[in-house]
């Protein structure tokens, strides 16, 4: 790969820059719009930079709801969803590196849970929660989203590429299965853990429907639920919504920046299967 010349890099860089502009523009527009007045938001052609710069939207945002409480709930959910991510990884290891009875069938059942629109199961899940007495509890909010087929499948695909010889060697040395998972599989999976970590954070940070459905009390609401309360029956204050979304997106960008460097730091020990 030494032959990548500076020239080639420039060409690729320019192509990426042009494409990138199209990709990032709506995000930039969203962020800048949170400093605009409502009337400036819908001008055609849209303005990129606010004509009348205002903090009004953010002032309104932070005074209009119980911010600290919602933030706390959101963070609890994020925390538990990271725990859920490890349950996903464990299950994926089980599916990728072991032979056991009913494995393929069981794995397909896991995948099947992705294949049906969420609304179909909303009421059944609620009724199950209700019979367990978990409505209006943090547990009821967290449990349904703790594990997911997408995560299990993603981890399984990557763990499959780890060479079985390494694991066998460790087993011969007397390492426990748990040790192998924790000290060999997980480190090799660093890049995909980073990817899954980003996705898990975003999902937890934005969690909306279950907190709303489960809670019979504002004190279990999340930030996303709080933001959605800003809309009226007929009129929706878009500038305020943009401010809310901007506020929500900043931590995501920070997490992305933090995690993304691990995407490039895998152990290069995998081999052909």
């Amino acid at each position: 790969m030494k032959e990548k010349t500076v020239g080639q890099k420039w060409i690729v860089g320019v192509i990426l820059a042009i494409l990138g502009l199209i990709f990032i523009l709506p995000l930039v527009w969203m962020i800048l719009s949170s400093f605009k007045t409502e009337s400036e938001l819908f001008t055609i052609p849209p303005t990129v930079f606010p004509k009348h710069f205002t903090w009004d939207n953010f002032n309104k945002l932070f005074t209009s709801f119980n911010f600290a409480q919602y933030l706390k709930n959101t963070l609890i959910i994020v925390l538990f969803s990271f725990f859920g991510m490890f349950l996903n990884a464990m299950a994926a290891y089980g599916f990728a590196k072991f032979k056991f009875k009913g494995k393929n069938f069981l794995f397909f059942i896991v995948l099947a849970t992705m294949m049906i629109p969420g609304q179909v199961t909303m009421i059944p899940v609620y009724l199950i929660m209700n019979s367990l007495g978990l409505t209006n509890t943090m547990a009821g909010i967290i449990l349904p989203g703790l594990v997911g087929a997408f995560g299990i499948f993603l981890f399984r695909q990557f763990i499959s590429t780890i060479s079985t010889e390494i694991l066998e060697a460790a087993r011969l040395d007397g390492a426990s299965e748990w040790f192998i998972f924790w000290h060999i599989v997980i480190p090799i999976c660093k890049p995909i853990l980073a990817v899954q970590g980003i996705l898990t954070f975003i999902a937890g940070w934005n969690s909306f429907l279950w907190p709303l459905i489960m809670a019979n009390d504002d004190k279990y609401y999340t930030l996303s639920v709080g933001l959605s309360l800003l809309k009226g029956q007929y009129a929706s204050n878009y500038a305020l919504q943009m401010a809310g979304s901007t506020f929500m997106v900043v931590p995501i960008i920070i997490i992305f920046m933090m995690f993304q460097k691990y995407i490039l730091q895998g152990f290069n020990v995998s081999g052909m299967k």
């Binding site: 089980g94 049906i116 199950i128 299990i152």
Partner: peptide, 29 residues
Amino acid sequence: FFNKRAPYLFVSPAILLLLMFSIIPILIA
């Protein structure tokens, strides 16, 4: 004995949660 059990131990927490909050609800639906 435990080696045979190992895969089940790895998959069971996730499977139980999915059973409870996805698979049974899908069957109800």
